[in-house]
Computed example of a mutant assay.
Amino acid sequence: MTNDLEKTPVAVLGLGAMGHALAAAFLKAGHPTTVWNRSAGKGDELVAQGAVRAATAGEAVRAAELVVVCVVDYDAAQAVLESAADELPGRVLVNLTSDTPERSRTTAAWANERGIDYLDGSIMVPVPMIGQPEALVFYSGPRAAYDKYETALKALGGKPAHLGEDQGRAAVYDLALLDYFYGSISGLVHAFALAGADGVRAVDLAPYLDTITSFMPSLAAGAARDVDAGSYPGDAANLGMMGTAVGHILEWGEHRGLDVSMMRSIKEVYDKAVARGHAADGWVSTIEVVRGG
């Protein structure tokens, strides 16, 4: 095994769009890279750049110290790993396939039973950003395994973050951030539809969205402190007042014939929080309803 972390031999199992980008990033950083894909016909460009194409997943694993798998889902990942299980002990396995924390922990248990050092990870950027300094990739699992190959993993993204020993933690962060993302873009689409129903073009509304997006980082930081403290000050804007505003949006959306199911759900949560006595508290108090307690 080489001690030169900058030139760690790596294997990439799975050459979909993301897997291809991961392999290309390793090659660009100078790592000897072996690639494998279940179906033939992928990887020619990588081979032209210096990658070695393996005939089997096991063959790819044997050529590497660091093994990265990135396929469509955990069922596919498990099938790949089972086929190479005998070759994996003594190497560090990094699974960058997206799924739930439960699936991550199940795969981790499978790896632990076989003496395989296992890191679970989540890629938080789109394919074109792989290998860029600003690219964020989460990892969770044995700290020693992460530390040993951190330099090599930085080839995939300049902002790797190790989140702890629990192999499900990366998936927790992944789903939580995607929850925020999908909720946000759904709100954006609804805003465009609401304005458009009164003849306002999306491109005319868009420049003013910065009024809100610019203060979201500080808003999120403050909300996080309130959530962890279990305290929801409503001096600046209380839930009762904000619930009224949500009601206006809901009323006008219904009047314009929009699908208001998302906004109706928000109003229901606000109403439940008010009914629990949070009318004078801040909007963060709605977490007490969302938690389902």
Rank of each mutant, 00 (worst) to 15 (best):
R225K: 14
R38N: 02
G196W: 13
T286S: 03
T56Y: 07
P32K: 07
Q49T: 07
V125G: 08
Y149H: 15
R105V: 02
E6C: 00
N3C: 06
A51V: 12
D228F: 12
A171I: 02
L205C: 03
G158D: 05
E59V: 08
G183M: 06
P217M: 13
G90N: 09
T33G: 07
G16N: 03
G277S: 01
D73M: 04
V69G: 08
V80Q: 01
P160I: 05
G196V: 03
C70F: 09
G131C: 13
P126R: 02
D271R: 03
A79P: 01
R201H: 13
V227P: 04
A224K: 14
G253R: 10
V12K: 09
A54D: 12
A55D: 05
L250Y: 04
E254A: 15
Q49F: 11
V52H: 06
G41N: 06
A171R: 07
P217Y: 10
G199R: 14
Y74S: 11
A55F: 00
G199I: 12
G158R: 01
E59A: 15
R276S: 05
D75I: 09
V137Q: 07
E268R: 02
A202G: 15
L27W: 08
Y146R: 09
L175Q: 15
M18P: 14
M262V: 15
D259S: 14
G247W: 08
D174P: 11
G187N: 01
S261R: 13
A21T: 14
G183T: 05
R103T: 05
R276A: 14
R105Y: 01
Y149V: 04
H190C: 04
P160E: 11
L96S: 00
Y149F: 15
R256Y: 11
V12E: 03
S261M: 08
G243V: 04
M18T: 14
N238R: 10
R169E: 10
A135I: 12
L88Y: 02
A109C: 03
G257T: 07
R276H: 13
A195T: 11
L177S: 15
A57F: 00
A21W: 14
Y232C: 04
L27C: 13
